[in-house]
Design a protein around this nucleic acid. Structure first.
Lengths: 348, 348
DNA sequence: CTGAAAGCGCTTACAG
DNA sequence: CTGAAAGCGCTTACAG
């Protein structure tokens, strides 16, 4: 039975004929260190239990300045990558007795800043952020105020803070290297807008590195930024353009699951067949890839590990802040894995 | 620039040489009704702005007894149906100035009860709940205490409260009717565990109704509850069993997207082809269905509308509670749509 | 071993 | 038109 009638510390103290101080100490596990007799402690515990006492979180937060809540900002919680990430963060965080507030920034810098402000205003104890911001100005602000946070998924080269990422460059490199090793030379890359996001920049870098290593000349014409609002249409356009120009690549490296979905649709609707007409490898693994025909080769991110690491670092930082030691910045760079399926044609 | 240095009402009052009362009134838009001069109001507003004043939410919450936060409990935020729902709820709620706390119950009754307690303890102003609970005991508890909440997706027949659902029975009926109209007679139904959940019960009802209407005898052997922990294995087993028994149905109605994914995989791995060997229609539309070959016919739920309705009802209830009028229970039953693709074979 | 008291920052009767 | 004061429920020095 869930009770709503609010029982307060005072009620318990009153009923027991002791002070609120004593009750508070006992309930917070500070009975022993304050030398409260075992008997008294037991009486307090029992009564609190039987009265179904729950400390008022507002009073507690007001007094202690902490909420036991952490915030998570991602671009869109309905994107399967982020919803899984959120799920892992939720689990990790709640194991440590924290609650989670999940927000979607919609890739809008303005919205993200509002969200950041809102979370801080709600006095979350820390934030895990996959930022859409182009400049680090606001994030540096957080840092200067010693506010605990960790950047995941997307980071900034020129700015030192807590980060948990995947080796996007290497992951992309391996994917494209795999394509090349299957005999391909005309390989395109699709990156999603906004193209300044580090994941997209790094994956494009990895793509270029792989081509370079195999002495395949880079071709701007094969590097496309797909606007996230109209993926399908844009890919159709590009494909048609390539076709009329007689410049159709034999393979495409897709840097993100959303572009992959739109591309798969476009490729199918234009009557192209994978991998006969065009090979494809995508970043991010989603259910669809395993079940598509043919199954799509893709680069898997260790989502759970990203979440666990981020939470661990954040919680450490929150604790350190409590002790007012100085914060040490930590970086985690996790490895991706390539799952080979049947979307790349063996050439020659 | 995000400021962390906390500016309080007292700081503003002090700086302006007025009382906290006045500042509080002005900032809460009660300046006019308390006859504060326009000039004073302006001075307060300006200073608050320039000092970047943000009211302390704990103090506010403690004093007013509300958090401006609402809770959402679903079984799993990483399930695409729920992640989209959560996203819509997030949008709707934030338009009204509320924040959202999303939690996953993992279909565990125990976890759900803890989550419920936690949210109430955090004093969320209301809860939107897709409950996994078999009995309504705890939910009735909430109701008795006049705590604002609305049940979505999953409901209870024997218990009157706010609900927003989809017409699961009709949706399933239409799907199965569609299958029958394509000439099928041996039609199986897959439902996910726990089978007591209203969505699964209702969809199975709809399936039965359709068969009855067309005078097709019901066959227990074709009605399967698939345990959510091992969907793929179970479906493989069932399919093999049907095959050896020479009882293979010509079509399957799948009551949930998770079973659909596992079933598609099982069907493929057993070398069966859709729709030649077996036809399939699923509830819930996910990206996969559109892109699968063949594309899967499915029943679409109006996710955004479910979310919007639930939020509207909840917020109304929260307001009513503030006015301490009595709460009126409202029920919304939304219609599903069937998207016909190519997963059902035309027989005869 | 235990308690009285202050104070976190806000809102809201109440008083003038 | 405006302010002094109480109180929401907690934790934590401080005192004994």
């Amino acid at each position: 039975m869930i009770k709503n009638k609010k029982v307060s510390l005072a009620d318990i103290a009153m009923a027991l004929g002791v002070s609120k101080t004593l009750v508070s100490m006992v309930l917070n596990g500070k009975g022993d260190e304050n030398g409260i007799s075992k008997k008294t402690q037991e009486r307090v515990m029992e009564l609190a239990e039987s009265m179904n006492y729950k400390p008022n979180q507002f009073a507690r937060g007001l007094r202690m300045g902490r909420s036991n809540t952490i915030g998570l900002i991602v671009s869109d919680i309905s994107n399967p990558f982020y919803s899984r990430l959120a799920r892992s963060v939720e689990d990790a965080v709640s194991e440590s007795g924290y609650n989670l507030m999940i927000c979607s920034s919609d890739e809008s810098e303005e919205k993200e800043m509002k969200l950041l402000e809102m979370l801080i205003n709600k006095q979350v104890d820390g934030i895990i952020l996959s930022s859409t911001l182009d400049s680090t100005e606001h994030i540096e602000g957080l840092q200067n105020e010693n506010f605990p946070f960790v950047l995941i998924d997307r980071i900034y080269n020129d700015f030192e803070t807590n980060t948990v990422v995947v080796d996007n460059k290497l992951g992309a490199y391996e994917a494209v290297d795999f394509i090349i090793n299957n005999g391909h030379k005309k390989i395109a890359a699709f990156v999603i807008s906004p193209a300044h996001i580090s994941t997209q920049v790094d994956r494009l870098e990895g793509y270029k590195d792989a081509l370079k290593k195999h002495s395949i000349p880079l071709n701007q014409y094969y590097q496309k930024v797909i606007p996230r609002e109209e993926i399908y249409q844009t890919v159709c356009q590009i494909l048609t353009e390539w076709k009329t120009d007689h410049m159709m690549p034999t393979a495409i490296f897709v840097a993100n699951n959303q572009i992959a979905i739109g591309s798969l649709e476009a490729i199918r609707d234009l009557g192209l067949s994978i991998p006969k007409d065009i090979s494809i490898v995508s970043f991010d693994d989603i259910d669809l890839f395993k079940l598509y025909s043919p199954p799509i080769t893709s680069v898997i991110q260790p989502i759970n590990s990203i979440a666990r690491n981020a939470v661990e670092i954040l919680l450490d930082n929150i604790k350190i802040k409590d002790n007012s030691d100085s914060l040490i910045k930590v970086h985690k760079c996790l490895q991706t894995n390539i799952v080979v399926r049947n979307s790349v044609l063996k050439l020659g």
